[in-house]
């Protein structure tokens, strides 16, 4: 099988599997909504892991990039709502526009990532954290004060063209990209920077270049996640992209283990479903009425639960659930694994 074809195989399998899932489960609105939220969070966590985990830089403004993607893609879709591409059936035309706006959202976020990353990644240390924290807040405040973006009320009436298939295909793409990065020279360079930046530089690694590239890739996918988000929630407003959202993503990455892609996925799924699970649990417990009122407060209970979870994690397993390893590294030893190297 030629190399380019072999590269396509996972994509074709993913398309087939997702198409089947779409047909089987696509008509269950609550399930699709929940799966989409989980998917968006997985994209955010996996993409942030490229920066925070693989490269060892500390970015805490992922919600800002998500917001840039969400508003760019959402506004575009809103403007193109009544426009159809000539010669295509309405459904297809909508999907093509959806894809276009997603790419535009990702590109806008990537450009912001470049502008934010270039000056702050030339320096070592905590500067990136400070700058990304500021960036996230600036974006939110800008959006909150611009009429075009609906101010604090947000944007509504964005065509709901997202689907289970679209979200999870993007999940698949970000995971594919992350895995390909890890296996490449690019990934090795990021790893070297994470372990010891001075030594990496002495080896001839272009540290600034690699850090900025990783950051731009990560920002792009955060933008795509935002774009998807804008197309399945009825309304997007600045409240969805606060500092708390950024921290939520950081928590996912840390919980999963800095540097572990599968860890980020598992953590994102757990932390997204946790509130739903708590809600169900409280309802089950509370025939007494107390449970019902607790269930209504899950969104507020969530934050202390995250806090406790992190403290316990740091005490019991400071490297995160998986450390830098992947799920399959935990398989028994007798299952053969690829090992690359000179000798």
């Amino acid at each position: 099988m030629p190399a380019w074809l072999r590269g396509l195989v996972p994509v074709l399998i993913a398309i087939a599997v997702l198409a089947v899932l779409q047909l089987l489960l696509g008509h269950l609105p609550f399930f699709v909504y929940l799966a989409s939220i989980v998917g968006v969070n997985v994209i955010l966590a996996v993409s942030l892991n490229i920066v925070n985990g693989m490269t060892g830089q500390f970015s805490i403004g992922h919600a800002g990039f998500m917001a840039v993607g969400a508003y760019t893609a959402g506004k575009l879709s809103f403007l193109l709502k009544d426009v159809a591409i000539a010669g295509l059936p309405a459904v297809v035309s909508d999907q093509v526009q959806f894809l276009g706006t997603l790419l535009a959202g990702g590109a806008a976020a990537a450009i912001c990532g470049f502008i934010v990353g270039l000056p702050s990644l030339r320096l070592r240390g905590d500067y990136l954290a400070i700058v990304t924290l500021g960036f996230g807040e600036i974006i939110r405040v800008i959006v909150q004060n611009m009429e075009v973006f609906g101010r604090a009320l947000g944007l509504s009436g964005i065509p709901q063209t997202s689907s289970l298939f679209a979200v999870w295909f993007c999940v698949f793409l970000v995971v594919l990209v992350a895995r390909r990065i890890v296996g490449s020279t690019h990934g090795r360079s990021l790893w070297a920077i994470r372990e010891d930046e001075v030594a990496a530089e002495a080896m001839g690694v272009n540290t600034t270049g690699y850090k900025v590239r990783a950051f731009v890739i990560s920002s792009f996918f955060a933008g795509v996640a935002g774009g998807l988000f804008a197309h399945f929630v009825p309304i997007i407003n600045p409240g969805s992209f606060t500092f708390v959202k950024s921290i939520e993503v950081v928590v996912m990455v840390v919980l999963g283990g800095l540097g572990s892609t599968t860890g980020a996925i598992v953590a994102a799924v757990i932390l997204t479903l946790l509130p739903e699970a708590l809600r169900t649990l409280f309802l089950q417990l509370g025939g007494l009425g107390a449970g019902v009122s607790l269930a209504q407060k899950v969104d507020q209970i969530r934050m202390p639960v995250y806090g406790i979870l992190l403290v316990v994690l740091m005490l019991v397993r400071p490297q995160g659930l998986f450390g830098t390893r992947e799920v399959w590294d935990l398989l028994p030893r007798w299952i053969p694994r690829a090992r690359k190297g000179l000798t």
Binding site: V198, G204, G209
Partner: peptide, 24 residues
């Protein structure tokens, strides 16, 4: 010029404190 352009020109720096990758 940054280090990444100097290494191919034949300059190698073994930094202070060794700077080796302890996990590798």
């Amino acid at each position: 010029l940054r280090s990444n352009l100097l290494v191919p020109r034949g300059m190698a720096h073994a930094p202070e404190g060794r700077g080796i990758f302890l996990n590798l």
